[in-house]
Design a protein around this nucleic acid. Structure first.
Lengths: 218, 218
DNA sequence: ACCTGAACACCGTTCAAGT
DNA sequence: ACCTGAACACCGTTCAAGT
């Protein structure tokens, strides 16, 4: 039998990251263990540690991988470019909820810098004064990451329970039964919860920030 | 010796939550284990499970506890009321970084509803059309939670390493050394990183959203 | 009803030993 | 240089047994 080092599929960081993404996508965050990885890659845990420092680095690499695929910035009109980046993030996290969790857990990583960069170009082209650009980019990135984290958490809850509409319906019922004195606003919102569109609401938030940014342009 | 049930400090959910908050505040998220809790409360793990379903419920209870203390909404001018809530959240998460992590991990919980409610009143008083209120509140809450998550993660990183200014300085150096073609915006921002004020930047983001909201008022 | 604590089924990570 | 896999030091959670 050939030794591992002679095989075409020799272990490498890329192969490990690829396998990790597969596990995360198909079985969820909690399924990514070194034991699951060694089983899938038919190797020992020490072999994985030879290529990857620890689980945190592995998760950072998987996240960066997914984000890099999304952050291809075009030369559209700046508002549209920012909307496109935001929606790209939204859809990526919809498809890979674990990315949202990772982003809100470990910031200052390549993945976040990519988002900053993608948003920075359009802000410049919009004519936002340079000293305001950091704040504007930060607002957009923080909002995007906030939604990302929530969506990741929601995906976890929905997968665990039944389907999405049933889940939201149950939640709306719960909200509607809250104390009328203490939670008037939440009760009002509850009615709109089942038919509300996460993606649309996400974009509405982006547009609020964009409108605020427009007001800064001389 | 008196049996536990006769003691004044008999176990209760409140005492468990209180002890958990103490551990989280003084030793960090990773220090909160059932073994640490049993040691501090001088009891067995089964006793804790009698009062609390599992670790998730315990964390939800600790988070709700901290948020409830913050969300006392006054009757200030609506913009100021929203700023006060936002800053209250910021400071609470600055003091208890684990709250930020928990909020971005488990949404749709009492803690988040409290923030929604606190923000909803001022939005109403501003005269935001009813059908836009949900979107506006959601934008504010998501932004706040996004920053919360990032701050929690930062606190983790800073505690692990050296002090904050040294950490930011090192980060700025790293950013400044990124590829000039691929990361022009991040490199530009790097210069302002060490002396930038998180709290001020957070508030700048809130003001962007508020400006966008103002544009919706008929 | 409430508490004890051993036991179970997991984790991430290390490391001596192999090739 | 790269890989193996047993072993270590942890986890959260359960449950028979106590009071």
């Amino acid at each position: 039998m050939a030794t591992r080092s002679q095989r075409a599929d020799a272990l490498s960081k890329e192969r490990i990251v690829e396998a990790a993404i597969e596990i995360l996508d198909t079985e969820g965050e909690s399924a990514l263990t070194f034991r699951a990885l060694t089983a899938r890659l038919a190797t020992g845990s020490g072999a994985i540690y030879w290529h990857v420092a620890n689980k945190n680095e592995l998760l950072a690499a998987t996240t960066n991988d997914v984000i890099a695929r999304v952050m291809t910035v075009g030369d559209a009109e700046p508002h549209d470019a920012i909307r496109a980046i935001a929606l790209g993030m939204f859809d990526a996290i919809d498809a890979h909820p674990w990315v949202g969790a990772q982003l809100s857990r470990e910031p200052w990583q390549l993945a976040m810098l990519r988002i900053f960069e993608a948003v920075g170009g359009p802000l410049r082209r919009l004519g936002v004064p340079e000293r305001a650009q950091f704040n504007c980019a930060s607002a957009l990135v923080n909002y995007i990451l906030g939604v990302a984290g929530q969506n990741a958490a929601n995906a976890r809850l929905v997968t665990a329970g039944t389907d999405r509409t049933a889940f939201l319906g149950g939640l709306a019922d719960q909200w509607a039964r809250l104390d009328a004195e203490e939670y008037p606003f939440v009760r009002q919102i509850a009615a709109g919860l089942p038919e509300h569109d996460d993606r649309e609401q996400f974009l509405a938030g982006i547009d609020l920030i964009l409108a605020g940014i427009d007001a800064l342009i001389p």
